[in-house]
Write a protein that binds this DNA or RNA. Structure first.
Length: 480
RNA sequence: CGGGGUGUAGCGUAGUCUGGUUUAUCGCGCCUGGUUUGGGACCAGGAGAUCACAAGUUCAAAUCUUGUCACUCCGACCA
C-alpha cells in the first residue's frame, strides 16, 4: 500500500479528513469510534489493575522544562508555544495584541511528565502515599516536518500512564504489568503481531533509564512503533524533588515509570490488515460487526419477510456487544453496497433475498477471506453461537496472516553487504547483532536509513558493522 | 531549511507550451422525478468554479511576468 492509496482509503471510508492546518486531521465518526473502542478496552484493563484516570492541563510553563532539560531534548524542535493572550480587531482585521504578551511562554504539552511530577512533588510526603498509578487520556502536540494521517499527526490522541513507587522492584513490577496489558490489547484485540524489546541508548526516551517498545511491520516493509514503556528510575523525582519518608523515617526519592500508546494504532491496523478491496477491521474493535443487505425484486413481495428476519437477528444480538447495521436504502443497488462495506472492513455480511426466504437459510460472507456460509436461523442459539465463532475466527485469521508476513519479512543476516541490499530493496526486519556503540548505530542509519527498532535479547554474536563480539541481538528496520 | 513538482467544483481532471467562439472540458459524487435492484443501474432534468492569492503586461489573462501562500516528492529534522 503506497502513501496515496493509504490516504485515499482513509478519506473514502470516512475515518478522517484534512483540516486547515498541515498535520492536524479531523477524526470522523467512523474513525473516532474505532479509537473509542480501543480506548474502552485498554481503560477497562487499567482500571481493573488499580489505575485511576486523571487530567492535567494542556499548557505547561516553559520553566518546568528547564528543570530537566535533558528530557525536552527530544521535543525542542517540535513544540507549539503560546505567547499571547489577547486579540485586537482593527479595520476588520484581527491582530495579536502586543501588550498581552505573557510573562512566561507556555508550551502545549508534547508529553506530561514534567507537570505531573512537579505536581506530585507537593502531594507525596509519605510511603503511604505510594504507589501512584495514574493514567491520562488526552491530546498532545508535536509539530513534525513530515505528517501522515494517524501515523504521524502533529496533534494526536493518546493515553499516557504515569506511576510512582517506593523502590525499584515495585517500578519494575509495574512495567511488567503494563507490558502484559499492552500485549493483550495489541495481540488479542487489534490482531497485530509485534516484536518487543529495549530501545538503544540513542533511541530511548530522553529522561528514561531504559525504554521498551512494541514494534510491527507494515505491508510495504516499514516498521511502526506501536507503544512504549519507560523506566524513569529516579530521574524525574530527583529533578522535581519528588520524595517521601519511608518506614524508617528516611527520605527517599520516588521511582517512576511512564508508558503510552496513541491513535497511531489505527494507522497500523489500516496498514497491516488492509487488502486490495479496502480495510479489514479486527472484529473486537470494529464499530459495526455485521452489515445486512436486502435484495429486493420489483414486486415487493419479500420486503416484509426480509424485515422480519432482520428484526429477529437484531433481537438475537440485543444487548450483546455485536453491532448490526441494516442498509435498506433501496435506491442503491446491492453490488454498490457490497463494495462499500467491504471497503469499510465490516467483518461479516449477511445478504437476505428471495433465495434465503425460500431455503430458510441466510447467506453470510466473511470479509477476511470471502468464504460463504449458509446458516439456519430457526434455532437462534445455534445461529448466535455460529456468528460469534466466525467473528473469533476472523480475529485470529488476520493475526495469523500478519504474523506469517512478518516472519517472511524478517531476515537473519550477518553480513553488512547483504544487510544494505535487503534494506534498499525489500525492506522488512533484519535480525542481527550490534556492538552497543552509538557511532555504529549512527553510521548504519546514515548509510541505510535503517535504525534499531529494539534489542530483542541477550545472545552472543558478532556486530554486523564492526565485527566486534557482543551480546545484543537486535532488530533493524526502516521506520515511519 | 535546501532541491524538484503541482495549485482549475466535494474529489479526480482537460485546457497553460503558442493569450482571443471558453458561455472553462470530462468522469465520479451531490439534488429532483421516474423506472430498476443476487457484484459498482438507467433515463430525464438540475445545482455547484471570483481558474490558489496579489500586482503587472495587454484591446483581451486559467494561459505571459513578478511576488506571496498552500500542498507534494526527494534530502535534512523527528518517533
Amino acid at each position: 500500500m503506497n502513501s496515496k492509496d493509504y490516504i485515499k482509503l482513509i478519506i473514502d471510508t470516512k475515518l478522517a479528513f484534512f483540516s486547515k492546518i498541515k498535520g492536524f486531521y479531523i477524526l470522523r465518526p467512523y474513525g473516532y469510534k474505532i479509537w473509542e473502542n480501543i480506548k474502552n478496552i485498554l481503560n477497562k484493563m487499567l482500571i481493573k489493575n488499580k489505575h485511576k484516570n486523571v487530567y492535567f492541563p494542556l499548557l505547561i510553563p516553559k520553566s518546568l522544562f528547564n528543570i530537566f532539560n535533558n528530557h525536552i531534548n527530544n521535543f525542542t524542535k517540535e513544540c507549539a508555544i503560546v505567547t499571547h493572550s489577547r486579540l485586537l480587531i482593527k479595520n476588520n482585521n484581527i491582530y495579536v495584541d502586543p501588550k498581552s504578551k505573557l510573562n512566561e511562554e507556555l508550551i502545549i504539552r508534547p508529553t506530561s511528565e514534567t507537570i505531573i511530577w512537579d505536581t506530585y512533588s507537593k502531594l507525596i510526603q509519605s510511603y503511604k502515599n505510594l504507589p501512584i498509578l495514574i493514567n491520562q487520556w488526552s491530546n498532545v502536540v508535536r509539530l513534525e516536518m513530515k505528517n501522515k494521517m494517524f501515523i504521524r499527526n502533529s496533534e494526536f490522541l493518546w493515553q499516557e500512564g504515569h506511576s510512582g513507587h517506593i523502590n525499584k522492584k515495585e517500578a519494575i513490577k509495574e512495567i511488567k504489568l503494563i507490558k502484559k496489558i499492552y500485549k493483550k490489547l495489541i495481540k488479542n484485540y487489534l490482531s497485530i503481531p509485534f516484536i518487543f524489546g529495549k530501545k538503544t541508548k540513542l533511541e530511548k526516551f530522553s529522561g528514561s533509564k531504559f525504554t521498551y517498545s512494541f514494534e510491527t511491520l507494515t505491508k510495504n516493509g516499514k516498521s511502526i512503533q506501536l507503544a512504549t514503556i519507560h523506566f524513569l528510575a529516579k530521574n524525574f523525582s530527583k529533578f522535581f524533588n519528588v520524595s517521601f519518608t519511608d518506614k524508617k523515617n528516611k527520605k527517599k526519592y520516588v521511582w517512576s515509570t511512564s508508558w503510552g500508546l496513541s491513535m497511531r494504532l489505527i494507522g497500523a491496523i489500516i496498514m497491516i490488515h488492509s487488502d486490495k478491496k479496502g480495510l479489514i477491521l479486527p472484529p473486537k474493535i470494529s464499530p459495526i460487526h455485521i452489515i445486512i443487505i436486502p435484495i429486493i425484486n420489483n414486486n415487493n413481495k419479500y420486503i416484509k419477510k426480509i424485515n422480519n428476519i432482520v428484526k429477529k437477528i437484531k433481537i438475537i444480538f440485543y444487548k450483546s456487544k455485536i453491532n448490526i447495521k441494516y442498509d435498506n436504502n433501496l435506491n442503491i443497488k446491492p453490488g454498490n453496497k457490497f463494495y462499500k462495506y467491504e471497503k469499510m472492513g465490516i467483518p461479516l455480511r449477511i445478504t437476505i433475498g428471495k433465495r434465503e426466504i425460500k431455503n430458510n437459510k441466510i447467506e453470510i460472507i466473511r470479509r477476511d477471506n470471502f468464504k460463504k456460509y449458509y446458516l439456519d436461523i430457526k434455532n437462534i442459539f445455534i445461529f448466535k453461537k455460529k456468528i460469534l465463532k466466525l467473528l473469533k475466527k476472523i480475529q485470529k485469521n488476520i493475526y495469523n496472516k500478519a504474523k506469517k508476513y512478518i516472519k517472511k519479512k524478517t531476515f537473519k543476516v550477518n553480513n553488512y553487504y547483504l544487510f544494505k541490499k535487503i534494506m534498499s530493496k525489500k525492506g522488512g526486519f533484519i535480525m542481527t547483532y550490534f556492538d552497543n556503540n552509538n557511532d555504529t548505530e549512527l553510521k548504519i542509519k546514515n548509510e541505510t536509513k535503517a535504525t534499531i527498532r529494539c534489542i530483542i535479547k541477550q545472545e552472543n554474536g558478532k556486530c554486523i558493522y564492526s565485527g566486534k563480539k557482543t551480546n545484543k541481538k537486535v532488530i533493524f528496520g526502516k521506520s515511519y
